[in-house]
Design a protein around this nucleic acid. Structure first.
Lengths: 346, 346
DNA sequence: TCGGGGGCATAGAGCGCTCTCCCGCCGCCC
DNA sequence: GGGCGGCGGGAGAGCGCTCTATGCCCCCGA
């Protein structure tokens, strides 16, 4: 690399003080004579000193790094692993997570290292990585409901915070959305528009969030006088939205309003509706979920239930920080409220 | 954190050998009696030993971490920084970069730490981060042509590899696409379809890649007997594609083929064309660039010039590795060839 | 004049690992 | 049989930092 980097020792010699004093100035700890502080700072300037983080974290047992783990469930084969990363990032949701996390981390000059855990080996690697002290803790975003990683982390006693409540309870903090309220908000919107015949494209039943969104939607529709709501299960993808909407339309051609459990499926629904000659929103109103970027680019632009993903991600990072610093020991859940973003589709 | 982690010392005591021997076994260095190897491995198993990376990198001066930097150009304000991350990731291109990088890094059990450098402070932070020895080097993806970061890195003598050739020459290796050939391929496709009146939505002129794609397209069209090609400059965004295509169509209503310098702009172009009553591809053929995920979801699906982004990203990581290990000292450029992915739009 | 205390700096002991020496032993060759 | 090369293992010196224990000096009160 470059010529021998200057050490504390060098700075100390240059400033004519001891290592410890320089260390104190660098870390802003305890009282140091202002005159000496200037002296030291000057010496740092002159030598171009940068503290070696390996040495520091060897003694402090802190790294200033957290693992940001995107965790799948299964046994993804070696070849699919690259694709996994690409697929994850093709969902703009994850970009917002990163944005929120970085927003919190940056002022604390800590950084996220990106890890993917879509196979048993990769999960072990995450655990190993943390156990080796490469990172102070993990922020875990699971793409699949019964992801085994949280349990592994909890068992190893490693600090971690999850995005979304895990299916199986685990002794880790998590942040989540009030999904039920999200469903309620969507229902209220459709009710307010006067839709009577409504249907919904739900997420996978195995995902708790799907169930809660569905429950909130149904309960609210029932309270509004519409106890029966046809449901088709989707898989949070565009294609699954197309399939589900096609099925729904076959059984209920007179549908006036549709709630899709995410925007991608809402987009699929819109495509089907248009192809079947329905105008959105004039004939059928469509409400999506997430307020992701496709909501804006979709034709027509989607009215959608927004998750404050950035805030949630920042909260995740904050919780982890508290756990790592020992300010918090027991797991907590932090809930966020969704809000409706009105565009053209409903 | 968890109870005191076991150290080399502990394993050594457990196995009844010296620290050095355990270290040798762990790192697979020199000959160690197989019987003793088993002994040590057993002891490692029993103690649950995991080597402390801080201690290791303190002496090896290697970290097993590289910085993956997404670098803007300007003075992005504090508030926009989160949005920057989200915007970056909303482009699926970056997901492919991550996939390629991770694919190369993972078998070497090194990991990328994500950094954003969209302000002068953030750039300094990147340099500081590397100088502190937090990472062995940097992989830099610039979103803006005259990004000052590469020069900073080069001046500091820090190992770094760039995605795409920088406008201002810099003593760093980079990978890039043969953009000219990309333009040529697009032109050949339109020529083969019999398009005579063609136009193009280019990328920003300040970006070398834009110019080269344009040159390749124009040169090939000229060679095919169509020396004049109307151009509208875009900004690689959907909206800019809409604006550019609108302008193009106003001047040249009889256009039969359009080459857009990326898929997002191609999508915008398709929208405009359809709204103006042109059928794609029957009336107007459209060729995009990148073969990003929007190419597949666009209506109609886009014929697009594909960059092997994953391969390029992997090559970037490989080059960095070589530089870091000292196997390579002089900067090199590695060029990749684009290929046409045929879908419906052309 | 002297003892005591507080503010500031220093000395030095690690943190856990790698790696260079060095040493002992065995087998081989002369 | 003695010397010697090579293999396998151990001892110990750091890597650059933090932090506790310690010491120095000066000021103040008695």
């Amino acid at each position: 690399m470059n010529r021998q980097a200057p050490t504390l020792e060098d700075v100390a010699r240059e400033a004519g003080v001891s290592r410890a004093t320089v260390s104190r100035v660098v870390n802003g700890v305890r009282n140091v004579d202002p005159a000496i502080q200037d002296l030291v700072r000057l010496a740092i300037e002159r030598t171009g000193y940068a503290p070696n983080r390996a040495a520091r974290s060897l003694v402090t047992r802190r790294t200033g790094t957290v693992a940001l783990v995107v965790s799948g469930a299964g046994d993804t084969s070696e070849e699919e692993q690259n694709a996994f990363a690409a697929r994850v990032f093709s969902d703009p949701f994850f970009g917002r997570v990163v944005g929120g996390v970085v927003g919190f981390l940056r002022p604390r000059s800590t950084h996220p290292v990106l890890m993917f855990a879509e196979s048993p080996e990769a999960r072990q690697e995450v655990v190993r990585y943390l156990r080796q002290g490469n990172a102070d803790g993990a922020l875990v975003v699971s793409t699949h409901p019964d992801d085994p990683l949280p349990a592994l982390l909890a068992d190893a006693g490693l600090p971690a915070v999850l995005f979304a409540r895990p299916v199986r309870p685990v002794a880790l903090s998590h942040v989540d959305l009030a999904h039920w309220d999200g469903g309620r908000i969507a229902a209220e919107r459709l009710l307010a528009r006067g839709c009577r015949k409504v249907a919904t494209v739900s997420g996978p039943w195995a995902v708790p969030a799907s169930q809660e969104r569905l429950a909130g939607f149904r309960d609210t529709m029932a309270r509004g006088g519409h106890p029966y709501v046809p449901v088709a299960e989707g898989g949070f993808t565009l294609d699954s939205g197309v399939v589900a909407m096609t099925a729904l339309l076959a059984e209920h051609p007179d549908v006036e309003g549709v709630f899709a459990a995410n925007d991608l499926m809402a987009q699929g629904a819109c495509q089907v509706l248009r192809e079947r000659g329905r105008r959105v929103p004039d004939d059928v109103a469509v409400v999506g979920f997430d307020d992701s970027s496709v909501a804006a680019t979709c034709r027509p632009p989607l009215t959608s239930v927004r998750q404050p993903v950035e805030d949630m991600a920042a909260a995740m990072a904050r919780l982890l920080d508290e756990h790592v610093r020992g300010l918090r020991t027991d797991p907590v859940a932090v809930l966020f409220e969704p809000e409706l973003v009105v565009r053209e589709s409903a």
